[in-house]
């Protein structure tokens, strides 16, 4: 019998965030956009933080942005991340404005420059969950 390894933390999927995760599963990156005033933001919010409208949609974005910062974890705050150590977490400023925290894939720390152009890639975790991650553009 195999010992179960605790799964990695999963997103909280609710009425507000569901659209983002449905889109990610379909290979689309999206941010929440208000149909009343046009304001866009991430993470999702039950009302538009600018005009308080509830008329909001998950609008697909280009998936392109700039690397604003990054860190490398040497400590596993969850056992399920222990095998990934050290792993890189990045902060991306999407071309459309909102900031996203994600992982930078396919790169060594010495190759990373803040300000670099990045683009989204999708990593399928299982049938329910796909995580948007980023790679540095050539």
């Amino acid at each position: 019998m195999q010992t179960a390894i605790a799964a990695k933390p999963r997103p909280k999927i609710d009425n507000v965030s569901r659209g983002f995760w449905d889109n990610a599963r379909a290979g689309k990156l999206s941010i929440q956009a208000c149909r009343a005033c046009g304001h866009s933001h991430f993470p999702g919010s039950p009302v538009c933080p600018k005009c308080l409208s509830e008329d909001q949609v998950w609008a697909e974005v280009s998936g392109k942005g700039k690397l604003l910062s990054w860190v490398r974890f040497h400590r596993a705050y969850w056992d399920s991340f222990r095998d990934d150590l050290p792993y890189i977490v990045c902060l991306v400023g999407l071309d459309e404005g909102p900031l996203l925290v994600s992982n930078l894939v396919g790169v060594e720390p010495e190759q990373i420059t803040i300000g670099a152009a990045v683009e989204v890639v999708f990593e399928k975790v299982d049938d329910e969950l796909t995580l948007p991650k980023f790679r540095i553009c050539d």
Partner: peptide
């Protein structure tokens, strides 16, 4: 769960 936990950011 925090918003960024799935990416290991905590």
């Amino acid at each position: 769960p925090g918003v960024w936990d799935p990416w290991g950011f905590t």
